[in-house]
Nucleic acid binder design. Sequence first.
DNA 1: ATTAGTAATGATAATAGTTATCAAAATCAG
DNA 2: CTGATTTTGATAACTATTATCATTACTAAT
Lengths: 129, 129
Amino acid sequence: MANLKYSRQREAIKDYLVSTTAHPTADTVYMHVRKEFPNISLGTVYRNLNLLADLGDVNKIITADGSVRFDAYTEPHCHFCCRRCGKVMDMAPGHIAEIRRLASKDFDGKIEAYSILFTGLCNECREDS
Amino acid sequence: MANLKYSRQREAIKDYLVSTTAHPTADTVYMHVRKEFPNISLGTVYRNLNLLADLGDVNKIITADGSVRFDAYTEPHCHFCCRRCGKVMDMAPGHIAEIRRLASKDFDGKIEAYSILFTGLCNECREDS
DNA sequence: ATTAGTAATGATAATAGTTATCAAAATCAG
DNA sequence: CTGATTTTGATAACTATTATCATTACTAAT
């Protein structure tokens, strides 16, 4: 049923996500892929980002302000989002297993996934103020 | 500057949020407050929910599917969102402080807030399937 | 290589959720 | 009460995303 057919647009979208750690929004992906495919439609970008997310090839991240971002780094890790510049950064995975273990201790439903997002000021913005 | 004037609508919205642990959406709040104020506008509900959130009286929670929910319980705690019925539940606050301490070790920006959201199947939905 | 079947695309319309605008009504200090 | 200011309800506008659909691209079988 999941009859997937190759497309150059999808490959370009995936390649761009793999090449960056900036956690771009759909619109940012659109801007970049447009350099290679000037006629690509924004709908195609959304369609493929969601498809890649469903396949598990990319992560869909929702930040504290509700903006949706994409990340090709799918290993378990937390994110930090700067409230000033809006940048989303990966956090070292150092204690993720421990964090997950602690946080799930007191709940008796079936936990399948988690999202841990910290908000604050990144180093750059901290210096500016 | 924060020249706040009392309004009965705002009080009703706050009262409803305090009375429930269901983490309602703006639209659900609207439905309920309409019983007391049949002419209240959806815009008024949004305006006051955001105002209350800015004041720190309520929490604005963004779930894994991007839907926005409100919670009058402002003590630090995690949330669980059922992917089947969409219900959002509070999780015991047991290890929050410890989690936060571990996470700040992994990152050198200034962490001010966090959001920890688990997704899966709640007990009810687990039994149904 | 050609063809036939199906999936993906680009263009665009439609939708959902939220915010902005503004005249009228409500609040409140004096 | 009165006047100044905030809030409201109604509605328009906006943003992000999804749906629609004829055309194009991909691919496996001839």
